[in-house]
Simulated scan of single mutants.
Amino acid sequence: MRRIVVAITGASGTIYGVRLLQALQATPGIETHLIMSKWAKQNLAVEQTGYTLQQVNEMADVVYDDREMGATVASGSFMHDGMVIVPASMKTVAAIATGLADTLIGRAADVTLKERRPLLLVPRESPFNQIHLENMLKLARMGVEIIPPIPAFYNHPKTIDDLIDHNTMKLLDHLHIQNAFGGRWQGLAAAKKDAKGANSK
Rank of each mutant, 00 (worst) to 15 (best):
T92R: 02
A101G: 05
I4V: 09
R107D: 04
A191F: 14
E68A: 15
R3L: 05
A11C: 01
L24Y: 05
N57S: 14
V46S: 13
Q42I: 11
F181Y: 15
V6K: 02
A191M: 15
N129K: 03
T92Q: 00
Q130D: 12
N167Q: 15
Y64G: 04
S12G: 05
A40L: 01
D161S: 12
K41G: 12
F181W: 14
A109H: 12
N167D: 13
T14W: 11
F78Y: 09
F78P: 01
T92H: 00
V46R: 15
E31W: 10
L44Y: 01
D61A: 13
L171K: 05
I96Y: 05
M142D: 15
E145R: 15
A190F: 03
N199F: 11
L119H: 01
L53D: 06
D66A: 14
K196A: 15
H166Q: 12
S12A: 04
L163I: 09
A95Q: 14
V84G: 06
P151N: 09
L121Q: 04
A95V: 09
A11D: 00
I35A: 03
T159E: 04
S12N: 02
Y154S: 03
A101P: 01
I4K: 05
T98Y: 13
Q25S: 15
V63L: 08
N57P: 10
E47A: 00
L172V: 07
G187M: 10
R67K: 10
I164N: 02
K201E: 08
S75W: 00
T52P: 03
V46C: 14
R116P: 09
T9K: 11
L119K: 05
V62E: 08
V5H: 03
M69C: 06
E125F: 00
T92I: 03
T27D: 02
L163G: 08
T112W: 00
G106E: 10
D61K: 14
N199P: 09
M83E: 11
M169Y: 14
D65K: 11
L171D: 07
G82P: 07
H80V: 05
G10I: 01
A180G: 13
G197T: 11
N43H: 12
P28N: 13
M59Q: 06
N57W: 12
I147H: 06
N135Q: 07
I15K: 09
V73W: 02
G76A: 10
D102N: 05
V84F: 08
E134W: 09
K201I: 10
D102W: 05
T159D: 03
M36C: 09
Q54H: 13
L34Y: 01
K41Q: 15
V62R: 06
Y64F: 02
L133Y: 10
H166D: 11
D165M: 01
V73H: 00
G10L: 03
M59R: 04
M79P: 11
L53N: 07
K170W: 12
A190Y: 02
